[in-house]
Amino acid sequence: MSRPAIPREAERSTRSTPTTIRAGDAAAPRHPYREGMLELHDVTKRYGERLALDHVSFAVGDGRLTGFVGGNGAGKTTTMRIILGVLASDGGTVLLDGAPVGAADRRRFGYMPEERGLYPKMKVLEQTVYLARLHGWAPAAARANALELLERLGLGERTDDTIESLSLGNQQRAQIAAALVHRPEMLVLDEPFSGLDPMAVETVQAVLADVAATGVPVLFSSHQLDIVERLCDDLVIIAGGRIAASGTGEALRTQHGTERWELLVAGDAGWLRQQPGISVVEFDGGWAVFEAESDAAREAALTEAVSRGGLVSFSRERTSLAQIFKEVVQ
């Protein structure tokens, strides 16, 4: 479904009255411009003889947090730069709400590159307000939104500090504020959690979840797979310029996960190594993780554990994103 055109005057008027959106609001308002999704279809990119992107296709849904993961040189940053129009593709299409993404659409995107790109000698608040003003916000509204956002990101006491005087972690928070201050309708972040301590990670996670709750599609790359697994609705795994897997976490576990079982007994679980049809993956005293070649082999192992006494727990192990990643990229 295509988006109705928004007159510039109306667009600026809407942005001059920002609303506060908190996690857990009963009826958080949807983003005023968002309907649909961002889609990539068969996007290719060459650097000389090297094929950097090979028919890359995936979608970032309306209000969905999508994690984009892959090894160094897999094609994540190249893909993001093509979405933003920083690079031109050699083939394929990038669509927003079913229509090709144009310059007007991209002006309403938010982007945080992996390399920090803020003016080092500008003050934090001054820089953030300036970027909001570039996107058409009125001075008072730009300042109010910047102050609120910086407070939420833990920079409320650093607004008069220069960017260069901040720690690397706080510079990262300022960079995130720069990408969010104009309330973008599409958000693309390259390694937003890099250099953040655990408390800062939680803060940024909450802010990004709030942004998605307003209907904004959010695409971000990260090498921190535990964060991606915890935060994202959807996952896209890229390897060697090709999409190796994509979908929800549960869908990927179903498609690529290995069924494993966790056993904990009061005594020693070494006997499990002798069980027919059982392959022990990890073992430590009374704790073991194993694979079973059949349901019958698994049930027999459980029956043996019960008969020996001291069974504490028996459950199916949840396949981690790290395990899925290794499975699909090898």
Rank of each mutant, 00 (worst) to 15 (best):
T128A: 11
G110C: 10
P120M: 03
K123S: 12
P113H: 11
L118T: 00
V124H: 00
N145Y: 12
A142W: 13
G154D: 07
P120Q: 08
K121D: 15
L118H: 01
R152L: 01
P139D: 13
P113I: 11
D105Y: 12
K123Q: 15
Y119S: 06
E151V: 03
K121Y: 15
T128M: 09
H135N: 13
P139Y: 11
A138F: 04
E126I: 06
L125I: 04
K123E: 15
L155A: 02
Y119W: 12
E115V: 08
M112K: 15
L150R: 02
Y119V: 07
R143C: 08
V129Q: 10
L153G: 00
L155S: 01
L150G: 02
L134N: 07
H135K: 15
R106C: 02
A99W: 06
E115R: 12
R107E: 07
A146T: 05
G110V: 06
P120D: 07
L153V: 00
N145I: 00
W137M: 15
G102N: 14
E148D: 15
R107P: 04
V124M: 01
R116F: 02
M122A: 08
P100R: 06
A103F: 07
A141V: 04
A99G: 03
Y130R: 09
A104L: 12
Y111D: 11
D105M: 08
A144C: 03
T128H: 11
L153Y: 00
A138S: 09
A144D: 08
D105Q: 12
L153S: 00
K121H: 15
R133F: 06
L153F: 00
G117N: 15
E114C: 03
E115Y: 09
A138R: 11
F109E: 13
M112Q: 13
A104E: 15
V101L: 12
Y130N: 10
K121A: 13
V101A: 14
Q127G: 01
M122F: 08
L153I: 00
K121S: 14
L118K: 01
G102T: 13
L131R: 11
L150C: 04
E126L: 06
E114F: 03
P120I: 08
L155H: 02
F109Y: 15
A103G: 05
G117V: 13
R143I: 05
H135A: 14
R116Y: 02
L153P: 01
G154V: 05
A142M: 09
K123T: 10
A146G: 04
V124F: 00
W137Y: 08
G102S: 13
G117W: 08
G117Y: 05
G154H: 04
V129E: 14
Y130V: 05
R133Y: 07
E115K: 11
D105G: 09
E115M: 05
L149T: 01
L149E: 01
L153C: 00
G154S: 05
Y130G: 09
E115C: 02
M122K: 08
Y119H: 10
E114Q: 11
D105E: 14
R108D: 10
R107M: 12
R143K: 14
L150N: 02
L118E: 01
Y111K: 06
R107I: 07
Y119R: 06
F109G: 07
E151G: 08
L118G: 02
